[in-house]
């Protein structure tokens, strides 16, 4: 009893080093509650990230046998448009004639296509500026001065390798993961 009473009075006095036992308890308790509080926020934040069903959105297979040179098709993958374009030899030559160092996002056509399949230009149809769908994949649409794609939203212009040439977009149209299942079937994703 006596010792308890002593320590209680001691609690209210300063020890030699100026630290009180109660200070330690306070700091420990508040830190513990604080860390717990922060951890409790985690589920509230991660619930907003893409859910499993969104992530699981299957890869798609695209039949490209009907796409003749000079033509392109627009397919939906993960609810976003993908441009599959069969380049004409002239368009390939134009893309390869560009001095890479002059580009905003320097890449060659070969780096943006599969080996031996330079004519198959497969990119996301999502402008790297603010996400509009550029024009130029369908017959008769405005392809802009570089013959690739033209984004009507703020005027980004892409060339025949879907590289950004002029306008506000910072990057080339993104190339998704894809592979050739057969000469006429492409799997995207």
């Amino acid at each position: 009893m006596a010792t308890q009473a002593e320590s209680a009075t001691l609690d209210h006095q300063h020890h030699g080093d100026g630290v009180r036992r109660r200070d330690f308890l306070n700091v420990a308790a508040v830190s513990f509650a604080g860390v717990g509080g922060v951890i409790a926020i985690a589920p509230l934040i991660v619930q907003m990230s893409p859910s499993a069903d969104v992530l699981a959105m299957a890869s798609i297979e695209v039949d490209i046998s009907k796409v003749v040179p000079g033509q392109g098709i627009k397919v939906a993958w993960r609810k976003q448009p993908v441009f599959v374009r069969n380049l004409m030899p002239k368009e390939i030559a134009e893309a390869n004639a560009v001095d890479i160092s002059s580009l905003r996002d320097p890449q060659t056509l070969a780096q943006r296509t599969k080996p031996g399949k330079q004519n198959w230009l497969i990119t996301m149809g999502v402008c790297t500026h603010l996400g509009c769908v550029p024009l130029g994949i369908s017959e008769g649409e405005n392809r802009g001065p570089y013959g690739g794609y033209f984004c009507p939203c703020h005027g980004s212009m892409y060339d025949t390798a879907a590289r950004i040439r002029q306008g506000p977009a910072p990057l080339n149209l993104q190339v998704p993961d894809y592979s050739f299942k057969s000469p006429t079937v492409v799997q995207i994703g």
């Binding site: 907003m48 990230s49 893409p50 859910s51 969104v54 993960r78 609810k79 976003q80 999502v126 996400g131």
Partner: peptide, 11 residues
């Protein structure tokens, strides 16, 4: 994270 997907959708 804001969209809950790669493009605006159900989430």
């Amino acid at each position: 994270w804001l969209l809950g997907g790669y493009a605006p959708d159900q989430a």
